[in-house]
Every structure is written in structure tokens, then in C-alpha cells.
Design a protein around this nucleic acid. Structure first.
Lengths: 242, 242
DNA sequence: ATGTATCTTTGATCTAGGTCAAGTTCGTCA
DNA sequence: TGACGAACTTGACCTAGATCAAAGATACAT
């Protein structure tokens, strides 16, 4: 049941059909998009677009992971978001890009000319409604991350990150499952507002305490999920009254 | 030329008419909104809604400033956004609220029943288009703030904050103008991911260095704008190629 | 006017996490 | 199969900003 993306299949078989900017579109709308889209693949580590560049396309990530980041003049870098399949890149209504976008793994994008996409936004309500919804979700995620960056300790940051990775790819029920860190220690550090040494030390100490075990630098298994969640510093509930 | 908001005036004379969620609406659409809206005012310091509460309304700030924040169990607080006139509160499509919303100054909201607003989002494209646009702008601002929280020094954080306050209420040309900090030292600290003591010390040192001068705890004038901008740690240009 | 609470400043000290510096592991390519 | 480089770990030390503590300011209520 493993989706292998194939450009020739068309939108109907697209793995992100029901989650991307096109999610709310009906068959007719989809056939319009079909005629406008094009694919492009970027190798691992390759820059997709730089801050300040002209934005010629609005794209959706079809496969792979990209990062959004900003680097200050002296080299300090902050990753402000990870773009997973179905996430979009670009801002209709803006001429240039505000953050650097880089392929963290090999990335395939489904792209639309920005000008054409802007006409879709005004002419096809299903598009603006879906982009609105996605932007509001991203906004929420960004604000949650602001709490982490501004107020959490190194340990809480790492625990939150690991828990996020686990939550994102856990197959229901199947516990004791192996997971893969999608980022290097340095990339994790830039995402969490830490140094790579601190990331390494915190991971080592969680290993020593028996919360996690690593089979390899990138592959790990959670041994004590309760301890992991406790270490995130978040409420167990999402603010819901019990 | 000072707008005094008056509920009786109706949408046409509303001070946020051209910037809020209704900005793109035509006269007919506006008259629909007119029949659905209601106003509510909150006193300075009063909570507007708590994280986890049922979201009965979607609102726009008409006057005043509100804060969006999250507090961890042990009391650490992070302000994740300031809501100024025209900014909206609430997320169409969600049942509950994700952050605490508090009136920083006296705040007047223009409110819509959430359920009714959700029908507007599906029936009136001008609404979803405008909310999309605003959400994308907010997302950008949140990401910029993530860079500040994750990578900037205390001095850079304060300089960025002051510069933001100045930019937001500068009358063109008029330099040497007096500005007012909208927040207490503690609120500034919670917005910047610092302690109130560090905020106070950094402000004192910028005063000592002649970058700013205070006429009062809240009122200040910028004496050296170049030094202030230099201290933010940002590129002077917005990544634009010169 | 005066007392009280809130906000702010400043000083002294402490510490989490950064910086600097070796090593170690692992994957790749000859 | 070995050697090179990238990624990672660990240790020693340092510092920016937190914490703890004590005075000043300011505003507000009586």
C-alpha cells in the first residue's frame, strides 16, 4: 500500500489530492488545474528558492521534505517550518519570496505559474477557501512553535520535536515502531533554536535514561512514550476541560 | 483627523472598513454583514477568551490592542501575537480556541456568530479571499518572529521590538516624534522570550548610549534611528537585490 | 496629602546552554 | 580495503541572560 508517485497518473491518482490546495476542488475544477500544473524535482540539499527571489510559481510538495529558513548576516540560521507533502510554497499576491526554501530530502513539487494561480484564487472559491484553511493551520503551528522557541528548555524542545516526528508517522496501534529523524543534528538545532552540540547531548541523555533507543544515528524507537510526553512541557490535553 | 469609533455609524464609516475581513466586500455584501455583526468592549487587562473555550464568535479588533498568548503549567508565558485594529480573532472551522486572548488596552470587537461566519466563508468569496490574505500575512509575521525568538540576542530582540512600534505609528517625515510602548516591561518580556529584568536593562543601556530617550516609563523618542536599525540584526533591505 | 499597590530599575550571583576543541563513527568512493 | 570527509559525540570552559533581592518611581484610592 505504498504510494509511488507517478507524474503520468494525473490529479485523480495524486497522493496529495485530498490534502493540498486542490482538496476542495470538484472534477471540473481539477481538470482546469490539470492543464496548468507542471512537476519539478530537486535533489537532497538543493536550494529550491532564495529569499528575495522573484516568485514565479506557487507549488505544492508532492513528495519529500523541504525547509523554510532565514539566515542572519553572521550565519545564525532559524528554520521556521518544515514543508511536508501537501504543504504549499509561495504566497499568492506577493512578488518575492520571504524565506529560503531548501530540499531536505529529494523533493517533488507540483507547480503553477503564480499569475495563473492568482486568477484561480479570485475565480475558484474552492481554492481560496482551501488556501485560507491551510494558512490558518500553518499559522497555528507557527504560533505553537513560537512558544517552544521563546519559553521551552533544551530538553523540552527536543522532546517536543521527537514527539512531533513520532506523531506524524505513527501507524495506529503499532507501538515500539522504528522512526527516522528527517533532519541532521544541525538542522534539528536550527529548527529548535539550539546548537548541534546541545541537540546531541540531549538526545544522548534521553538515550541514557531509557526514553529512546537508537539503532543508527537517524533511526530510533520510543521506549517510554509517557516520559517523552511528560518531557515536552505541554499539557497532556489541548486545553480542553476534563 | 482622529477617528473616534461610534457603533451607530455602520460599516461604511467603520475605521477598519478597508483592512479587516470585510475589506474586499462590496456594498451588497456589506449590508449582509451589517445585519449579523454586534459589538463588544473589554476593559484593559480583561480576558477576552481562554484557550480551550468554545469559540462562539469570530471577531475583528475595531479599537485597542489584544494579545494572543500561551502559558505553560509552571507559569512561563509566551505572547505569540499582538492583535491590532483590523486583525481578527478566531478560526473558522474550529470548535475551540488555541490561545488565550487578553485585552492589553481597552478593546472593542466587531463580532459574528462563528456558525454564521462559516457560511459567509463558503458563500461569499470576497470573505475567504480576504481571510486567506490576512492569514498569509500573519503567517509571515509569525515566522519572522520565530527568527527573533530562536536566534536573536536580547539586544537585537529589544531593538526589533522598538523598531516595530516606531514603524507602526510613525507619521511620515515627522522625525523625533514621541511614541508610546503599548506593553508593560513584563508583557514585552513575554513577547520577546526574555525576563522583565533583561528588558529593563536593555532599555536602560540603549538610553545610556543615546539611541532612545524616555519622557516617562512608556513614552520615548528615537534619537538615533540608524543605530536602532543596526541593532535589530536584520538586513537593511528585505532580501531585495539592490 | 498620604498610604498602598504596581511597575520599574539596578545590583549580585548563578546556571543552562553556547563555544571551542578533540575524538569517534559511518558511509562512500577509489 | 582503506582513506577521506561528513556527521556525530563528548569534554572543558565560558558567558548571556536568568534568578534572587532590594530599592526607587508612579499612579490610584481614601
Amino acid at each position: 500500500m505504498n504510494f509511488v508517485f507517478n507524474e503520468r497518473d494525473g490529479c485523480a491518482k495524486c497522493p496529495i489530492r485530498h490534502r493540498a490546495v486542490c482538496a476542495r476542488c470538484d472534477e471540473d475544477e481539477l481538470s482546469v488545474l490539470e492543464g496548468m500544473k507542471s512537476y519539478k524535482t530537486f535533489a537532497q540539499g538543493e536550494p529550491i528558492i532564495w529569499r528575495g527571489d522573484d516568485m514565479h510559481h506557487i507549488s505544492s510538495v508532492v513528495a519529500g521534505i523541504a525547509s523554510l529558513s532565514r539566515t542572519l548576516e553572521d550565519g545564525r540560521t532559524q528554520v521556521v517550518g518544515l514543508l511536508l507533502p501537501s504543504d504549499f510554497i509561495g504566497r499568492p499576491g506577493r512578488e518575492t519570496v520571504d524565506f529560503d526554501v531548501t530540499a531536505v530530502t529529494e523533493v517533488t513539487l507540483c507547480r503553477f505559474q503564480r499569475k495563473q494561480f492568482e486568477t484561480l484564487v479570485t475565480d475558484v472559491p474552492h481554492i481560496s477557501q482551501r488556501v485560507m484553511e491551510m494558512a490558518l493551520d500553518e499559522l497555528n503551528a507557527a504560533r505553537e512553535w513560537m512558544v517552544l522557541l521563546g519559553r521551552k528548555t533544551a530538553r523540552e524542545k527536543i522532546a517536543t520535536f521527537i514527539e512531533m516526528v513520532v506523531r506524524r508517522d505513527t501507524v495506529p496501534v503499532h507501538t515500539g515502531q522504528a522512526h527516522t529523524l528527517p533532519l541532521t543534528r544541525e538542522e534539528i538545532a536550527n529548527f529548535l533554536g539550539l546548537t548541534l552540540e546541545t541537540v546531541s547531548r540531549q538526545l544522548s541523555s534521553m538515550k541514557k535514561e531509557g526514553v529512546l533507543t537508537f539503532s543508527d544515528r537517524r533511526k530510533f524507537t520510543v521506549l517510554n512514550l509517557a516520559a517523552l510526553q511528560e518531557a515536552t512541557g505541554d499539557d497532556a490535553d489541548g486545553g480542553v476541560i476534563i
